[in-house]
Write a protein that binds this DNA or RNA. Structure first.
Lengths: 329, 329
DNA sequence: AAATTACGTTTAAACGATTAAACAATTAAC
DNA sequence: GTTAATTGTTTAATCGTTTAAACGTAATTT
């Protein structure tokens, strides 16, 4: 890397102090600077292609204009879609984004948080893994500006932007009921993540409100990150009940894929609803309804909250966005 | 953000100079430091949860341990998949990754490059958009360590990691021929991007070597980023020739999707091969062969080259990886 | 004419680390 | 017993910025 041009180089060439160069290039001290010399400084700066060293600037002003983004896995469509929105919002406000994937592991997440804080990020956007309560609490205590997305911790009064999962699941089940389905199963997760439990609760509420009895056998739980193996078994289970299901609600895009693969192979045609869309929906013979998260709104809101938090003029905000049910008949 | 602990704080508390604290915590000057005081410094550092300010360190040692990743769009699966691999490789070497999406636009790409360089990244991984020649040349002249991925510029002797697109396309077409196809069309791009032209050339070469005449009508070109509108038309064109095609090679995952959607809707069953896999392949009745890029190798090689370049011990390297043809019958 | 204000610029400290060189205080060498 | 080497620590400069305060000089006020 070639030696870069610094304020000093410009100052020397023009024959003034670095302070003056700094003032001129930052348009400070309006009116107090000689027109002549200002012009000359700007000219020399341009001719040398001067670009300020942001590291030095960051150290001095104690602000890096960088935000850290921690997702479960950047190669997952939900995460990368979110990343893209955060990126755009951040850049439009003069921020740069560093990112890392936690793989849903709390130790990795902690490592990333530490790394980012040591790099003096101005704030964090975090999609927290299961069991991150302690970490989140510590962030809060250390007054690090941050905002959670997709997931939240009800007992912690920290910034978060999620969808109303309870309502979303409820509306999906209601739709299945309206379509005449009565034996509605669900593929859920065995997890302590509240936002997923909310989805399960929404499913139960919908059935209860419709006066449909919900047998425990209709609710199958699989392990996070083990979808490929466990979902087909779970679906098979739902199909082989004495009273087989006539519809299934899938809790996530990661469960619906192996689920559909199985149903497709078995040539079973039942009602299907899912959280989040995947490309394959367009290609399947049966219509698949899904809950569409307003990803753009989520990302934009998250960054908005974060930036206001960085600027120290906002208290904690918990946002629950309304998800849209895309109803395919 | 709470005031963070600095070397000074530790030094004061222990009653020594910051220099000594620095030496101790970095394990410098082995054996020259008093055991007693070293222990005390480490203890105090730990009790205060000292974490070094990387910004200050970066300024001093002129190294940020950060690399910049510029892709077309982080929400595109190819880009996010690559991002994940780069991330893992980078972190395992103590580097952090900042990223940006160029949207295939040269102006955005230039802006990102400038932003990243001002932030003193140690190097760049770039998926360059069409027409980036000038930018790349300037990076090279300024001796910024960088490596191109996926795309290259034959006339520029700079680091790059790609697949052998010519060979890959050829093998795909050869396979179609072996399956008995004779009227093989291709959906290609109207572009100056060499790696895409290579794919086209590979297609032509395969036909020529097999002694099959390649009419110009068999090669349809669409516009980058306009796949959704143009590909269906192009496919329709290939099917309505006086001698319709019995197979199509798609140049990318972005073209194969609308193509398949159209073919599926029209219930046409012909041979299909494509670059890159998409999730939907598993769900379609017809077998679809595809060229699988060794994404992991590409990412790992790119980072390896970049790091060696940063450490100043390697000349420019152009790598062409072998892609794998996944043959579904 | 002395005192004040304004103007244009420089000085110098600071941000938080690293590190060569200097410095006492011991210990070893001859 | 003087000199030299070793040991443990500090001093101070440095990285490239920013910015409050100081500083002359000129213009204005009284």
């Amino acid at each position: 890397m070639k030696k870069r041009i610094s304020l000093k180089d410009i100052a020397q060439k023009v024959g003034v102090s670095t302070a003056l160069v700094s003032y001129v290039l930052n348009n400070r001290m309006q009116g107090r600077i000689g027109e002549e010399v200002a012009r000359k400084i700007k000219k020399v700066a341009a001719s040398l292609h001067y670009q300020p060293n942001q590291v030095a600037k960051s150290l001095k002003i104690n602000k890096t204009n960088t935000i850290g983004l921690i997702v479960a896995d950047i190669s997952n469509p939900y995460s990368s879609g979110l990343a893209r929105i955060i990126e755009d919002e951040a850049y439009s406000h003069g921020y740069t984004v560093i990112f890392g994937s936690s793989d849903e592991r709390i130790d990795k997440c902690e490592l990333l948080v530490d790394t980012f804080i040591n790099r003096q990020v101005d704030g964090l956007v975090v999609l927290p893994p299961e069991g991150a309560d302690k970490l989140i609490k510590s962030l809060h205590k250390r007054k690090v500006p941050f905002v959670l997305v997709d997931r939240y911790f009800p007992e912690l009064p920290v910034n978060s932007v999620c969808i109303d999962n309870h309502e979303a699941a409820k509306s999906a089940v209601n739709m299945l009921i309206k379509q005449g389905k009565r034996r509605i199963g669900m593929i859920s997760y065995n997890t302590s993540l509240i936002h997923l439990q909310d989805r399960e609760e929404g499913y139960k509420t919908a059935l209860k409100e419709a006066g449909i009895k919900m047998g425990a056998k209709l609710l199958k739980k699989v392990t996070l990150s083990k979808e490929e193996e466990e979902v087909p078994l779970a679906v098979a289970g739902l199909l082989s009940l004495s009273q087989p299901v006539d519809a299934i609600l899938f809790i996530s895009n990661k469960t619906v894929l192996p689920g559909l693969r199985y149903l497709n192979a078995q040539q079973v045609d039942i009602g299907i609803a899912s959280f989040d869309k995947t490309e394959i929906f367009d290609f399947l013979p049966m219509p698949i309804s899904y809950i569409q998260q307003p990803l753009h709104q989520i990302g934009a809101a998250a960054l908005d909250i974060l930036l206001k938090n960085i600027a120290r003029r906002q208290k904690s905000t918990q946002l629950f966005m309304e998800a849209q049910l895309i109803n395919k008949v």
